[in-house]
Design a protein around this nucleic acid. Sequence first.
DNA 1: CAGTATCCTGGACGATACTG
DNA 2: CAGTATCGTCCAGGATACTG
Lengths: 101, 101
Amino acid sequence: MALLDLLGRRWALRVLWELRDDTAAPTFRALQARCGNVSSSVLNERLRELREAEIVTVSPGGGYRLTPEGHELMLALAPLDAWAVRWAARSLPEKRDRSNS
Amino acid sequence: MALLDLLGRRWALRVLWELRDDTAAPTFRALQARCGNVSSSVLNERLRELREAEIVTVSPGGGYRLTPEGHELMLALAPLDAWAVRWAARSLPEKRDRSNS
DNA sequence: CAGTATCCTGGACGATACTG
DNA sequence: CAGTATCGTCCAGGATACTG
């Protein structure tokens, strides 16, 4: 699937997550900071890919933000996220069980 | 996110997809064939990870199948899949547009 | 048939230095 | 500040040969 080729890459989802809030429209450097100082080369590469996919766009003011499609993607991601949360909640206690007698 | 660490790996989703049909419970070699003859080393690695995550299990008969959690995961994936389909449907025509005058 | 053990290679990622 | 260019490292994945 080509979609995971895009979203599976490092920082891709993190970037989308940081752009959730539509009012922010952070600049390149701001995004970079929010993402633990990714290399500018990688961040730029990701942003280019996401723009080509029309998931992200640059606002007139110069900041990055999600496109409408990007927002829909985030919505489509919600059930998966919910599953992941339940999943993590189930597997972590299991590990804890081992350290119990 | 640890979940994408798992599902983002090559063949992971493909394996789940091939295990959709619960009545099948394919064997190792059968799965390998269905996945375009992945290396046995890689397939085995993926299957081990998915079993550790309790998304896949080996049935008493010896075939692989999804766990209940695995099936829930597939359900959680549905909206994302739907989005991806619409997305592909929108971006492919765009490419075709370029070859038009 | 199921699974393991090795070796090799491409490319993703990160760091860094640079231009406009 | 925004983005590009370059280079080195490392590891996932593939090929293959092997064991039980």
